[in-house]
Design a protein around this nucleic acid. Structure first.
Lengths: 292, 292
DNA sequence: CTAGTTGATAACCCATAGGCATTATATATT
DNA sequence: AATATATAATGCCTATGGGTTATCAACTAG
């Protein structure tokens, strides 16, 4: 009785919540299973809340435990970041902004931002990580990221979207393809070709847009390959395995045996959005957002 | 060495940061001053950051300490809030209930429930999904739903049924049909008409009930169309393609070229049931069930 | 110079986190 | 039905380290 919750309890709780197995969690924590069991029990006693259901042969989280895990995840990430920042404040190099991005943001938006920020706010450092849309959303909610660059139209309530770059779409063809700038009139001219697209789990919004471009012209594309990297897609096109549709700006920086034809007269646009948590606590984020 | 930061360190840190006085802070914490001094020193060693300036006769925060205090204040408030919420989740006064329903439940039962629940349990959120009977049963068993609204008489053992709304049946006729409130005596008057019904795979119980209504009156209806949406059925009736039998309350909310005549002197009733898993683990479900 | 602050240091004490051995219970196997 | 194997919980013990008191060192005020 009269015990106090300590960080230890939360570390242990997270380990068990992730492993859903006391012995494995204990191994990961480098302590014995009985010790772990006892600490978790103590935690439940202090909180007066059942966190785990030890049922039959498996352990699972209660609703309360599920809720707590999500919050503790966030709190720990925020705490880690805070402690790192505290040290930076001491050394005077205050300010780190953790940025996640889709590869396509590296074409222009992100480099522009970094150059501008470096010029005017030299004390703010950046850590960059290439991540898929969904991974960025999760990382933002857990406070593992401060800012994301995504292609999504709908995000959770507590996140804020802002369009930062609107792009047209271009058709990617092998060098020797009969279509060129003068005789290319519309996407329906390649309706019988095989298509190579970005994976829908990498960016479902992008995937749907491509499909709608084709459907507006009255055909459903035959998709033979999917990839997450522009380079791979270009390589596949170059090899004659099909054609692709990509945001126009993606062609920058690639020298390959393919040609790009901007698709005329379509309403679809590839929109890149900046994304951040509305109540983000990082003071370095605001000045960065002002550049967008 | 090799120590770990614990919540205690942060509690102590906050006390000193507020009092700016070790003895007073120690008093407030009900520990001795030397103990406090040692814990703060340990904290600074672990973080490798100087948090306080002990200068001459007064204590003050370093820049790093000031930053840390602000963040730890926030983190502790958030943690307190989280722990309180966790307890609420356990008691079921906070949480999410996932509800599946037949379109016809939206006429009165479900809106009533939601209004009542929102009034008395504003912290419980709902996610709603329109699903057929069988889909709801499957979703309930998979724990993708907490509560369903179905028209079924028999369900698997581990599910619980409860009647929540009993309705009479009405005949749906085109506006110009010769039958009306005064000359309508029984369903046998339309025994030769074509019938439009809900699909039996959408609700087999409903389908069987309709058939039994007719069979009780000595005829088997000629079913020419089936649909899953009330709106579609009304449209088909309006177009003169047949007549329909529906639960009386379904007419609410539709303005169409059809008329409704309640069928007198029949024992059949359209019963809407609430359905849930007996050993559902969601604590938010119980208080909702109490409203039924 | 003395009295009265302040926080830091030293040496001891004991509460308790964690280890080991074991039990209790459920599932899988024979 | 009996046995084997897996799980988490329980009981007892040890030793780490947080908290104690006593003291020191440094500063200020009178």
């Amino acid at each position: 009785m009269g015990y106090q919750l300590e960080l230890r309890h939360f570390y242990y709780f997270l380990a068990v919540a992730e492993e859903l197995h006391f012995r494995k969690a204990a191994e990961r924590l480098c302590i014995s299973q009985p010790g772990l069991s006892r600490q978790i029990k103590q935690m439940e006693d202090i909180l007066d809340v059942k966190l785990f259901i030890r049922d039959k042969r498996k352990v699972s989280l209660t609703a309360a435990g599920t809720y707590l895990k999500k919050e503790v995840d966030y709190i720990f990430n925020h705490l880690d970041f805070t402690l790192k920042q505290t040290k930076l404040v001491q050394t005077g190099s205050l300010g780190e902004v953790r940025i996640g991005f889709l590869g396509s943001a590296m074409q222009s938006v992100l480099p522009d931002l970094l150059v501008k920020a470096n010029g005017q706010l030299p004390k703010i450092q950046f850590s960059l990580k290439e991540l898929a849309n969904t991974a960025q959303v999760e990382a933002l909610e857990k406070d593992q990221l401060d800012l994301g660059f995504v292609r999504l139209s709908r995000v959770p309530q507590n996140l804020q979207l802002k369009a930062v770059f609107t792009d047209t779409f271009s058709l990617v063809l092998p060098k020797g393809h009969f279509l060129n700038k003068t005789n290319f009139t519309g996407i329906d001219q390649v309706s019988t070709e095989h298509f190579i697209l970005f994976s829908s789990d990498y960016s479902s919004l992008y995937y749907d847009k491509i499909m709608s471009i084709c459907e507006d012209k009255g055909f459903t594309p035959v998709v033979t390959h999917k990839s997450v990297h522009a380079h791979t897609i270009f390589k596949l096109v170059e090899s004659g395995l099909g054609v692709a549709i990509i945001p126009t700006s993606l062609q920058k920086g690639f020298k390959m045996g393919v040609k790009f034809l901007e698709i005329p007269n379509i309403p679809q646009r590839a929109v890149l959005y900046a994304l951040w948590k509305k109540d983000n606590r990082n003071p370095a984020l605001q000045p960065i957002l002002n550049f967008l």
